[in-house]
């Protein structure tokens, strides 16, 4: 069974391209959200296996949202994404409960599969 994905990012163009690529590579995108608050609500309601979560969101810090998602009843695997590179964020990214970090341009089904391996599908 395909892993279900929620994409939380404020750029619609990126969400669309990511959804199509991941779906072509065997994931099932079950939701999109343009900001942290709606992302958290969608994660709680849809209970996806994976959340792709932009670090820089228009309303709240993506790292804070990641920690809030880890407190949900069925916490998803959170993968932080950004158009910035990992070193741009400093050490607070290491302390975050997210499973991993992927540069938006490097995103693919393969990379996501690598980060979610071992996850009971």
């Amino acid at each position: 069974m395909a892993l279900t994905v929620l994409i939380v990012d404020d750029h619609e163009e990126f969400r669309r391209a990511a959804r199509r690529l991941l779906e072509a590579q065997g994931f099932l995108v079950i939701g999109e959200a343009p900001d942290g608050a709606r992302g958290l609500r969608a994660a709680s309601a849809l209970q996806p296996d994976v959340v792709l979560l932009d670090v820089v969101l228009p309303d709240v810090d993506g790292i804070v949202v990641a920690d809030q998602m880890s407190d949900l009843a069925n916490p998803p695997v959170v993968v932080l994404i950004s158009s910035r590179r990992r070193p741009d964020f400093g050490p607070r990214l290491d302390r975050c409960s997210a499973r991993g970090f992927v540069h938006k341009g490097d995103l693919s089904g393969e990379v996501l599969a690598g980060l979610t391996s071992g996850w009971p599908a």
């Binding site: 750029h11 163009e13 990126f14 391209a17 199509r20 690529l21 158009s83 341009g105 995103l107």
Partner: peptide
């Protein structure tokens, strides 16, 4: 917000084309 997002989307589209 502008050019960078379009370029990122382009990368993902090219990956989709390859797929």
């Amino acid at each position: 917000d502008g050019a960078q997002q379009r370029l990122l989307a382009t990368r993902l589209s090219l990956k989709l084309a390859a797929e």
